[in-house]
C-alpha cells in the first residue's frame, strides 16, 4: 500500500493523472456523438495522420505540437467534407488517408533515423509527458468540454436526425466542423499519453459501453464520461503497479468493461 501511495509523489504520475483524466472525459463525451453518427473511424484516421505529422516535425526539428495540431484539424475537415460530399466513399476516404499517412510516417522515421521515437508516438508514454504537454492537454480538453456543453442541444439534434435539423433552419454543416475540430483536438491532446494507434479506442469504447446501460441521451453522455474516467484511472495506476504500457492497459480495461456489460446484459435478457 505504501508503495502504491508513493506513486503519487512522482511528478510524472501527477502530470499523467491531471492531463489524462480531463482527456478521458472529453474523449468519452465526444465519442457519444461519433458513435451515434457512425463516425467511429474518423478518430482512428486522424490519429494516424497525427503520426505522420509527428514524424515530419521530428525530421525537420520542429515542435510536434505546432505541426500536428493544424495538420490534424485540416485532415479532419477534409475527411468530413469527403464523407459528406461523397457519402459512399466516406469510410474509404478515411482508410486511404490513414493508411497513406501511417506509411508516410514510417517512411520518414526510417529515412531520418528517428525510429526510436516511433514506438512512443504509436503507443504513447506517460514518461514522455512534460509540463507543456500537460498544459496543452488541459487547455484542449477544457476547450472540447466547453464547446460540447455550449452546443449540446445542437449536437443532440444533429446526431438524432439531420434532415429534421435542416427543416428547423439549422445549418448542419457548421456543426460537422464543430465535431471535426473537437475530434482533432482530442486526438492532438491524447496522442502523447495514449499513442496514435490507441487514442481512438478511448473515444469509442466508453460510448459503446455506456450505450448498453443508459436510458436517454443525457445519461448516455454522463455514463460514457464516468466509464472513461474510471477506466483511465484504473488503467493508469495498474500500468504503474505492474510496469506495463499505460495506453494498452487503459484500452484493455475499457474493452473488458464493455465485455462485462455485454455479458451482464445478455444474462439479463
Amino acid at each position: 500500500m505504501a508503495e502504491f501511495l508513493e506513486l503519487f509523489t512522482y511528478p510524472f504520475v501527477i502530470r499523467a493523472i491531471l492531463a489524462g483524466c480531463l482527456l478521458s472525459i472529453c474523449a468519452a463525451v465526444l465519442g457519444v456523438i461519433l458513435v451515434l453518427k457512425h463516425y467511429s473511424l474518423i478518430g482512428h484516421g486522424l490519429s494516424e495522420i497525427g503520426f505522420a505529422a509527428l514524424s515530419i516535425s521530428a525530421a525537420f526539428g520542429l515542435s510536434p505540437v505546432i505541426i500536428s495540431t493544424p495538420a490534424i484539424i485540416l485532415a479532419s475537415f477534409v475527411i468530413l467534407f469527403v464523407s459528406q460530399k461523397y457519402k459512399v466513399a466516406g469510410d474509404t476516404a478515411i482508410a486511404i488517408a490513414s493508411s497513406s499517412a501511417l506509411a508516410l510516417g514510417v517512411l520518414v522515421t526510417s529515412m531520418t533515423g528517428t525510429n526510436s521515437n516511433a514506438y512512443t508516438w504509436l503507443f504513447g508514454s506517460v514518461l514522455a509527458l512534460n509540463d507543456l504537454d500537460v498544459i496543452l492537454a488541459v487547455i484542449l480538453s477544457l476547450t472540447v468540454i466547453i464547446t460540447f456543453t455550449i452546443f449540446y442541444n445542437r449536437l443532440f439534434l444533429i446526431s438524432y436526425n439531420e434532415e429534421y435539423a435542416k427543416s428547423l433552419g439549422i445549418k448542419t454543416g457548421i456543426y460537422h466542423f464543430v465535431i471535426s475540430i473537437m475530434t482533432a483536438l482530442v486526438v492532438v491532446s491524447g496522442m502523447r499519453i495514449m499513442g496514435t494507434l490507441l487514442i481512438s479506442s478511448i473515444i469509442i469504447l466508453p460510448a459503446v459501453s455506456a450505450r448498453n446501460i443508459s436510458h436517454g441521451f443525457f445519461k448516455l453522455v454522463i455514463n460514457s464520461a464516468i466509464i472513461s474516467f474510471a477506466c483511465f484511472v484504473t488503467g493508469l495506476l495498474s500500468s504503474f503497479v505492474f510496469n506495463i504500457s499505460t495506453g494498452a492497459c487503459i484500452v484493455l480495461i475499457n474493452a473488458l468493461v464493455l465485455m462485462i456489460i455485454k455479458l451482464l446484459k445478455l444474462r439479463g435478457n
Partner: peptide, 12 residues
C-alpha cells in the same frame, strides 16, 4: 436513437 420522448419533443 437513445433518447427519451421528452428530449425529442424539446427539439421542436
Amino acid at each position: 436513437f437513445p433518447a427519451k420522448v421528452k428530449e425529442i419533443i424539446l427539439t421542436g
